[in-house]
């Protein structure tokens, strides 16, 4: 396991000296991540995501419970851990603000004592995949957010870390920049060199990158499962969208269909169907009754899924 935690808990004392109150930020997080995995770490604001990440990266001591990352005790062996993991915070920068991006990379290479040949190879690859040639000589303060984030991710990967922790890496990025970053991260992870742990509010990030999802709320793990399993368990209905060649009345009485919506004067119909129904059988059944021009199946969005999860977990 590259990340192993057991009953991780973190309390904070807040308020003034006279009126201290104990706030539990992380109540009980037990998490095991194997090398090469890509895990999405989800939860609403204040759920305990960032606190957990701080404990995993060694900048916060757990109140109780234990954590081991890359086989190290994060707090006691923080410096050693720093050599073996990369961290990207969407809202903080690890680049040198006044220097050209390239010089920040050089400094990272030097701080991590990356051998020259491997550094060159790694940098060249990142520059190419992330299309950074045009702004390598630009001071970081003049980069757009999208360009800077590409730089942040590169800096975090230059020393070939075993684990890359990304805390809201796509926050504030436009769609094209998000997509570029996602496909890069997905490619890096697919080669099996680096494990990804990603926190985000942007669920498409998770859909694109993570096979496994850990959802936490109120400092506890609500769900820890494969994304596909979660979909099946929680997501409820899928929707078959059929485009017809001629207008038709609402298609009633189809097996397994729980809701029908008619659009475009009967030229398009949305058929919601439950988990027990096969999309293929439903399409065949529709095709026997009307002439089809096109069909698509909409998977339930992960937003719906997470909303369902939170709603079902609210403490009374």
């Amino acid at each position: 396991m590259i990340i192993e935690t057991d009953g991780l808990r973190r309390d904070f004392l807040v308020g003034t000296r006279l009126r201290r109150r104990r706030v539990v930020a992380v109540r009980d997080v037990t998490l095991n991540v194997a090398p090469g995995e890509a895990v999405g770490f989800l939860g609403p604001n204040g759920a305990g995501k960032s606190t957990t990440i701080k404990m995993l990266t060694g900048v916060l001591v757990p109140t109780s419970g234990s954590a081991s990352v890359c086989g190290l005790d994060p707090v006691r062996e923080r410096r050693e851990l720093g050599k073996r993991i990369g961290v990207v915070f969407g809202q903080r920068s690890q680049l040198w603000w006044d220097l050209p991006l390239e010089e920040s990379f050089d400094l990272h290479g030097a701080i991590h004592k990356v051998p020259a040949a491997r550094y060159e190879e790694r940098l060249e690859e990142c520059v190419e995949l992330l299309d950074m040639t045009s702004f390598l000589r630009t001071p970081v303060r003049q980069l757009s957010l999208g360009q800077r984030m590409r730089g942040e991710v590169t800096a975090a990967l230059l020393h070939s870390p075993e684990l890359l922790v990304l805390d809201e890496p796509t926050i504030g990025l436009d769609l094209a920049s998000k997509e570029r970053l996602r496909s890069f991260l997905s490619a890096v992870n697919a080669r099996g060199e680096v494990t990804l742990l990603l926190t985000t509010h942007d669920l498409p990030d998770v859909e694109r990158l993570c096979r496994r999802v850990v959802v936490i709320d109120h400092g506890r793990v609500l769900v820890d499962d494969e994304l596909s399993t979660l979909r099946r368990r929680f997501a409820g209905n899928r929707t078959l969208v059929v485009e017809l060649t001629a207008p038709a009345e609402a298609l009633a009485g189809l097996t397994g269909v729980v809701d029908v919506q008619v659009e475009a004067q009967g030229m398009r119909q949305r058929l919601a169907f439950g988990a027990g129904t096969s999309a293929a059988e439903l399409i065949a059944e529709v095709a026997r009754r009307v002439e089809l021009r096109d069909v698509t199946v909409d998977e339930p969005s992960i937003e719906d899924l997470v909303r369902t999860l939170y709603a079902s977990s609210r403490p009374a």
Binding site: L99, E103, D106, L107, K113, Y119
Partner: peptide, 20 residues
Amino acid sequence: MSAPYPQLVRAGFRRYASYR
């Protein structure tokens, strides 16, 4: 790549060189 500290000295120099 080795010795980050001499390189940090250079970075400190260059950093201020950008504010003429």
